[in-house]
């Protein structure tokens, strides 16, 4: 199963792509991640993860239209594939299953 398992950061990136819908390109993903997790996401790390996800077939990408911003360079937009969606669902199920069997979960200090 190695190769289809999702790492923690990979899952986050995948979820962000899904959340951004049409606007999911590298810089936007970084910003969004930062907003939600509060951690600084480096472009280098995100870029490498996107590359890996694409290799695994969990996302697919296409180049957008050229604009005058970004020195006239096109953006690469990402989209979660069917396999990606299944992967996300599966990891959510694993978590939910675990949550269910915890007998009373109290976050107040004991």
């Amino acid at each position: 199963m190695k190769g289809t398992n999702l790492g923690e950061f990979e899952e986050l990136v995948l979820l962000t792509i899904a959340a951004l819908v049409q606007d999911a390109y590298s810089v936007a993903i970084c910003d969004e991640l930062e907003k939600h997790t509060g951690r600084v996401s480096k472009l280098g790390v995100v870029h490498a993860v996107l590359n890996r996800l694409e290799e695994k077939g969990l996302v697919k990408s296409r180049l957008g239209e050229a604009t005058s911003a970004r020195g006239g360079k096109r953006k690469r937009y990402y989209e979660v594939t069917q396999a990606g969606k299944i992967g996300l669902m599966r990891s959510k199920e694993v978590r939910d299953g675990l949550w269910k069997i915890i007998p009373g979960f109290n976050i107040e200090p004991a």
């Binding site: 590298s26 810089v27 870029h47 590359n51 020195g71 953006k75 690469r76």
Partner: peptide
């Protein structure tokens, strides 16, 4: 294959 959007990303950060 990945040059153009990488250039774009770096430009965006640069700006």
């Amino acid at each position: 294959g990945i040059l153009e959007d990488l250039q774009g990303d770096l430009n965006e950060y640069f700006e």
